[in-house]
Amino acid sequence: MDFFLAPLQFPFMQRALLGTVSIGILAALIGTFVVLRRLAFIGEGLAHGSLAGLALGYVLHWDLYLVGNIYTVALALFIGYLHEKSKVSLDTAIGILFSTSMAIGIAIISNLKFYTKDLTGYLFGSVLAITPFDLNIILGATVLILVILTFFYKEFVFYAFDPEMAEVVGLPRTVLHYSMLSMIAITVVIATQTVGVILVTALLVIPAASALQWTRSLKVLLSLSVGFGVTSAVVGLYLSYYLNIASGASIALTAAGIFLMSFLFSSSPINVRRSLGFKEK
């Protein structure tokens, strides 16, 4: 018991725990929609593209993550707009804009004396450095997105399953699409605090993908995904504390471990047998 409680005597560790759990829930929920809509690349792209937003925040001496959030939401909306208005696929639109945005970020950083410590935290996650202000942003964003998803659950499910029919029925497809992109953007920026830019996709995609091994019911899927996300976050946090490794790596590796277990032990043993080379009788 001491093993779990001892670290929590430090306020920074309390904040870290609250922050990671909150991010674990948020990323798993939004991640489920990301996986179902096959938007994994946009998560990756927005994470990398957010570099310019954070660099901008640094230059302006404003809060990095607040500026990062606003910037990345704008980037997500612009990606959606470019895809809609020009003849490029969504993947291509993401490719064009995230690399451009990242280039702007790199240009700003290379021109400044950016402390390596800040950059490392941004790239690999620095969950132990979450300030009370950061925590407020994390909790605020989580509550906001939870409320939106709860109130418009059936609309987002319809949009995710069959966007065209959602429009025929009279749902505002464009609004739903851009809201989803914005929520992904916020989730990604918030999640960089625990897992870093490079590993955001892990927290966004792996819990939902693991849950998908177990169920074909959306409600069960969402609950399982949240369960896996929180487990990854908490286990990863303790591993990070005791083994002194970057929290991003320990959280992503825990999530990957859960996926491996799900893949091996879920109810479709035939698939496993097949992938191991056994013939079906």
Partner: peptide, 12 residues
């Protein structure tokens, strides 16, 4: 792959 049942689709 989408985790939705016959009943849920009709309810949409």
């Amino acid at each position: 792959e989408f985790p939705i049942s016959v009943y849920e689709v009709v309810m949409l």
